[in-house]
């Protein structure tokens, strides 16, 4: 049956409407999880708050298990799912820059907009910087093109590169996620709580 748009169940004209609704829901969940606070977000780096880890890993875990079952039931065809191509160089370089920005600014792009929505000044400055960065990147793109498209691996998935089955990977991921939650709770116990 699914993906609904690719198989013609929903007209592609609805793309933007659906994107808007999903975006609103995403923003709401971010705000409801407390992601509009830069202190809470930065907490994952200092070890006093792991809500970022918990929320995102839970989301990935639930989606992953759900997709495996949906695929089996024929409700969605995983071979038709768009998989973002992996560019190794830009993933590493971009990841480092994004991480630095995250720990310095206390926001990632999505959460900064949530922060702006609830009226956080630091989030406002962060998103101005974000657009400045996009602008500079666009101007510098001819020089950065090589890095940007470097290490092209195509739309590869972890289970393909590890050579294990989808089910096994899902199970290992669930265990790893729960393990990460446990480690996070251990770390949190040792670090002094701070006022958020």
């Amino acid at each position: 049956m699914g993906p609904l748009i690719a198989n013609g169940y929903i007209d592609p004209a609805w793309n933007n409407v659906i994107a808007l609704l999903v975006g609103i829901a995403f923003g709401y969940i971010l705000e409801a999880s407390g992601f509009s606070s830069s202190r809470k977000l930065a907490g994952v780096f200092y070890g006093y708050d792991f809500v970022v880890l918990r929320v995102f890993m839970t989301a990935v875990m639930v989606a992953m298990v759900g997709l495996v079952y949906f695929n089996y039931m024929g409700w969605i065809d995983l071979s038709q799912i768009f998989i973002l191509p992996t560019y190794m160089t830009s993933v590493i370089v971009g990841g480092v820059i994004m991480g630095l920005g995250f720990v310095m600014g206390g926001f990632c792009p999505g959460t900064s907009f949530t922060g702006v929505a609830v009226g956080k000044l630091d989030a406002l400055f962060f998103s101005i910087g974000l657009y400045l960065g996009i602008f500079i990147f666009s101007l510098a793109f001819p020089w950065l093109e090589k890095i940007y498209y470097g290490g092209d691996l195509g739309p590869i998935t972890l289970m393909e590169s590890l050579g294990i089955s989808r089910g096994l990977f899902t199970f290992l991921f669930v265990l790893a996620t729960l393990g990460a939650f446990w480690v996070a709770s251990m770390v949190k116990k040792r670090v002094k709580d701070i006022e958020i």
């Binding site: 024929g74 096994l168 199970f171 669930v174």
Partner: peptide, 22 residues
Amino acid sequence: LIVIVVLLGAGALFIPEERFTE
């Protein structure tokens, strides 16, 4: 929640890769 998620994850081990035939 942990029990449910582990059970579902373990269930994924036994799900065949091929799609459910129509």
